[in-house]
Nucleic acid binder design. Sequence first.
DNA 1: TTTCTTGTAACAATTATAGTTACAGCGCAG
DNA 2: CTGCGCTGTAACTATAATTGTTACAAGAAA
Lengths: 146, 146
Amino acid sequence: MKISSRFSVAVHILSLLSLEPNAHHTSEWMAGSVNTNPVIIRRVTSQLKKAGLVAVRSGTGGATLMKPAEQISLLDVYRAVEAVEEGELFGFHEHPNPQCPVGANIESVLQLVMLRAQTAMEQVLGEITLDQLSAELKHKIDEKMC
Amino acid sequence: MKISSRFSVAVHILSLLSLEPNAHHTSEWMAGSVNTNPVIIRRVTSQLKKAGLVAVRSGTGGATLMKPAEQISLLDVYRAVEAVEEGELFGFHEHPNPQCPVGANIESVLQLVMLRAQTAMEQVLGEITLDQLSAELKHKIDEKMC
DNA sequence: TTTCTTGTAACAATTATAGTTACAGCGCAG
DNA sequence: CTGCGCTGTAACTATAATTGTTACAAGAAA
């Protein structure tokens, strides 16, 4: 089971906003780059908007970053698109038998452990900014131009 | 989207094997503790067996650990039940537009970043042994007995 | 007003999970 | 050597989430 590709789509969108500031960022234009349906883009953009990461001009169309790229972490994006509910990366089996010593106590022990694992992953995402990612991306792009 | 509860069921099973060495660990008995169907238990047990973590006596029934609990990490269990394919925790949108500079390069950049995040999580799992987890569990159990 | 765009609803197709029944086949007890 | 209990697995269901689609009301500007 994988984390929804909404997350990678969201990062793609933000990269476009960050690296191509002069384009007219309509959902259709971005869908062309992501290679999907414009509605997919609008859905994700809508979540990014709710999270205060982008502004969208309805009517005329187009989206823009609401914060400087160095103040947007991948964790912000991850949370924005709800790729995973907060603190719920790991699924648990429900209602283990409370009569059994193991069944009665496994949940709390597992919760702790899993949370530690999950937090480690989120910390990595939290330390990477859109700015850094865009820079890496730009580097790759320029490389190929030679 | 969550990681399959197969993982938590597997840990539950191994905890039973580790903490209650005298019981007859049939799928039905374990299903009673996990509170699910015996077939669910057999399916997971079967994966643990393939991974060399447990032995199952067909005929008579019952399962046992194949390694000492301090040599089984939660990462081993995680891999055994294929809660997530190796290196594929994050889903990606496929075939971004190669004509677009961002589309052409986002995949490789994202792969790197996501892999780092995923690895951080797996490392935590790798550092926790069944032994440690059982000890915590036993501690909780004894606590409640007072 | 016309035109382009967004935001959303509604729906289909696909995919994975979790649970269930059913049954062949193994292995020990008697 | 036969019967019993248990495993391994197939087959099927129900459920839920994702991704992709079409369709359309409502916003904004030329």
